[in-house]
């Protein structure tokens, strides 16, 4: 079976899973559905010959599921009706479908699937192992050629986690302050 059929199958599962995740009422089912979508992304990365990304996506998906389940299970106060008014939802869906068809010609101008534009990365592929000594070329790009990107990325992760910790700690303090009243 050619790789396109496998990928179309995987993407179909992802589309189905994301629609289920958005429309189902039970919140645990929605989180499980989003987990299925993430694991399908991991499988698609394996089909596309990216084992690095497949491992990272798999592990981060598991961790995101743990965070979401830990945070949201047992809280009953969801919105009574999940969506906005049906007429507006229909109008939004109509606009997005029109958007889809308007942007279809853009994808026709891209290079076809399976023939990438190798210009910079051909240098990485041919000279990377000699210049950095790493067998994993993705690691040599992430941590040597483009280590500056990685530094920015670590900074963003640091800031995001710091923001989360600050918000959560703030809420705990206000709770403690409220209790004596």
């Amino acid at each position: 079976m050619p790789i396109e059929s496998w990928l179309i199958y995987t993407l179909g599962i992802m589309l189905l899973g994301s629609i289920v995740a958005l429309e189902i009422r039970d919140i645990l089912s929605a989180i499980i559905a989003i987990g299925i979508v993430g694991l399908a992304v991991s499988a698609a990365f394996l089909f596309l010959q990216a084992p690095d990304l497949a491992i990272v996506q798999f592990l981060f998906e598991i961790f995101a599921l743990v965070i979401l389940v830990r945070a949201f299970i047992g809280k009953k106060a969801h919105a009574d009706t999940l969506s906005i008014h049906k007429v507006y939802a229909f109008l939004v869906a109509l606009a997005l479908v029109a958007f889809f068809f308007l942007f279809t010609p853009v994808f026709r101008s891209l290079p076809p699937f399976g023939e990438p534009l190798l210009t910079t990365s051909s240098h990485y592929l041919t000279h990377g192992p000699q210049e950095t000594g790493a067998a994993n070329i993705v690691a040599s790009i992430v941590l040597d050629y483009r280590a500056y990107d990685t530094m920015g990325e670590v900074t963003v992760l640091f800031t995001a986690i710091l923001g989360a910790l600050t918000v959560l700690r703030m809420s705990r303090q206000t709770q403690k302050g409220r209790e004596p009243k």
Partner: peptide, 17 residues
């Protein structure tokens, strides 16, 4: 991480888990 798939990001999540 420099020889096989994986690296700091994936291993870090395994340790956190």
């Amino acid at each position: 991480g420099h020889l096989t798939p994986g690296g700091g990001f994936a291993g870090g999540v395994v340790i956190a888990l």
